[in-house]
Nucleic acid binder design. Structure first.
Lengths: 132, 132
DNA sequence: GAACAACCTGGAGCGCACTTCAGGTCAAGG
DNA sequence: CCTTGACCTGAAGTGCGCTCCAGGTTGTTC
């Protein structure tokens, strides 16, 4: 009985890129930056990504797209690699980032209002310049 | 009776930076990139920003912070300078950007869910490792 | 066994939005 | 007058997050 010898499906770089929407070059870049650790290799030396890797890359993208820097992500990964005793700090990191994301939502909600205001202005102008 | 000979208050670069939260260098950069046009000058050649400039810079920041590029902003400005007949296109630009901002909000709302999920995981782990 | 695609590595290059620099001008205070 | 600080210009530099390149290996297909 194997404990968890890597999740069933195993993906080539091209498949991984397809699945995650992240380019092959970026996947390698993340690995160089240690955001993606212990990626399996075929005997040929070619990478074989697991389903767990897919999930993790999705987390990475989620955090990146909301503004977490590569350096912060690396720190978060390194904490994870250091073991369970770093959980409190990882928790704090996520809480901090959570607040940032909420700020972004608030900022964008305000932006929508400003945009709608300007859109309303254009609509009014259009109505005025062709009165009938 | 003057029609609108520039808004009352007039601000030095330092004051403008203070008011808008945009650095003096960035203000000059925006002007070079033609995002900010017809900035008044004192006889000395020093810039004098109007209240209208303040409002416009606030719009610029709002659009920039939500991901509109400098190039797009320049295009938007150029349309404005070209006269009223470009309003339909400016309207379309804003509508397009509006959709983008809504996507960002949706994306970030999803991100919050993922973050909360992970936060929940850490909370559960903390509860388990110290059962009492 | 030859060609071709997919992969490997280390390192250089790129695009964007600023930011800094060098070298000078202007205006007020002592 | 002389200094000091805020301002001016054109141009070069920076930091980030990728993205691309050169030169080489692997492995499938005809």
């Amino acid at each position: 009985m194997t404990s968890s010898p890597a999740t069933g499906a195993v993906l080539s770089p091209a498949e991984m890129s397809e699945r995650t929407g992240v380019s092959i070059d970026t996947l390698r870049y993340y690995e160089r930056e240690r955001l993606l650790q212990n990626v399996a290799r075929a005997e040929s030396g070619h990478r074989r990504y697991s389903e767990d890797d897919v999930l993790w890359v999705e987390v990475l993208r989620c955090l990146r797209e909301t503004g977490m820097t590569i350096e912060q992500l690396r720190h978060y990964c390194e904490l994870g690699a250091q073991g369970d005793h770093t959980e409190p700090e990882r928790y704090r990191m996520l809480m901090t980032h959570r607040a940032l994301v909420e700020d972004q939502i608030a900022e964008r909600t305000q932006a929508l209002q400003l945009i709608d205001h300007k859109l309303g202005f254009y609509a009014a102008a259009a109505a005025t310049e062709t009165p009938s």
